[in-house]
Amino acid sequence: MRLVSFNPYRSIGVPGVRYIKPEMVFKHREEIAEADWILFPEYWQVNFLVYGLKKRIFPNINTYHLGHDKVEMTRAFWAVCPENTPYTQILASTDANIEQVLDEFTFPFVTKEVRNSMGRGVFLIENKKDFLEYAQKNSILYVQEYLPIDRDLRIVYLGDKVITAYWRIGAEGQFHNNVSRGGSISFDDIPEEAIRLVEKVARKLGINHAGFDVAEVDGHYYFLEFNHMFGNQALLEKKIPVGRLIYEYLQSQSIPPREPDKPLIPRAS
């Protein structure tokens, strides 16, 4: 396979990959056109690679489009697993909608910036002042019920299966559970039901590379979000060969080469 990657860090361990700087994409157009797969393009590259150059990309187009922001992601969850989605309102930041949220939600509740990750842009709203400050800074109100948890599950899906899962446990007194925000990792007592849920939803949505964040409340599981570019500290700790797993998945998806003298469409007799 001829592989081109735009992210050397995330392509470590993938055999035979050729790295090209994202900003050099059009200077290497011919080489990219010859590649069998394009790995880890930046979001601004995705549409012209897939729709213009007809390239297969990893992660796939479903993963990029649905994972681009929390609005798209949440609507996808509403479509395929509404019972596993926390109660959420997505509204324009108008005076009327601000009042609607204040009438509808009780404190505390959670607000999020539409495009952010690693716990950034996620806020615990404990009073009206907090919410008004958030609303003034965001043109879209993303408001979600507060779930009483001190940890959540990060479930890593690659290709067509879960490759690992772990708890992210928030530091004492902290709202965020993200490892990047001081959370700790535990691989103990991972619920099989949550793994099966992620595999089912990822397959329904056609996602092939994501870290799903799942909360458990009284034995019920809720999707918080997923990230197609997720942290790999836990994967390194478990010595999971991510590069090899990516390569094996790409091999399984590759189209066998056509014999040179065999036409794609039979000639008329």
Rank of each mutant, 00 (worst) to 15 (best):
K161R: 15
D95Q: 15
S269C: 10
F58I: 02
E31C: 02
G243F: 00
I12M: 12
G16H: 09
R2Y: 03
G231F: 13
G119D: 04
L102W: 08
N62F: 04
R75M: 11
L153E: 05
S180L: 10
K128R: 15
Y51R: 11
G159P: 00
K200Q: 11
V143K: 12
A92P: 03
N84V: 01
V101F: 08
L147S: 08
R18Q: 11
N138R: 05
N138K: 07
G183K: 04
R10N: 13
N7P: 06
K128W: 06
Y221A: 00
K137I: 00
T85L: 15
P241E: 04
N178Q: 03
E30G: 11
G13C: 07
D189L: 13
V80M: 01
N227F: 02
E216I: 09
S184K: 15
L250P: 07
H28G: 03
L102F: 08
V242Y: 03
P82R: 04
F187P: 12
P86M: 06
M73A: 08
P15Y: 02
I57K: 08
Y19Q: 10
I61D: 11
N62S: 13
I38R: 06
G119A: 04
V242C: 06
R10T: 09
M24Y: 14
G159Q: 07
G119R: 05
E83D: 15
K27L: 13
A234P: 00
P148D: 13
E248I: 06
N7A: 09
D36A: 07
F223M: 11
V17H: 07
S186Q: 10
P191C: 01
T85I: 11
V214R: 03
N116G: 09
N7D: 15
L39I: 00
P82G: 08
H68M: 07
F123W: 05
F123C: 00
V201W: 00
I190V: 14
S252F: 06
Y19V: 15
Y64F: 15
W44I: 07
R2K: 15
E72L: 14
F6Y: 02
L53R: 04
D160S: 15
S139R: 13
V114H: 08
L66C: 10
L245M: 13
T63V: 02
V46K: 02
S139F: 04
L250A: 10
R75V: 05
L224D: 06
G231P: 12
P256K: 10
M1L: 11
I57T: 05
R196K: 15
E259L: 15
E145F: 04
Q251T: 08
H176S: 10
M229I: 09
R244Y: 12
A194S: 13
T85G: 03
E104Q: 10
F26M: 14
A165F: 00
F212T: 08
N178G: 00
Y9S: 11
F58G: 00
S139E: 13
Q253N: 02
P263G: 07
T74D: 08
D103W: 06
I149S: 10
I163L: 07
F40A: 03
S254V: 01
E192Y: 09
G183P: 00
R151M: 02
P22M: 02
I185E: 03
D213M: 04
E83H: 11
A76N: 11
H220W: 01
I169E: 05
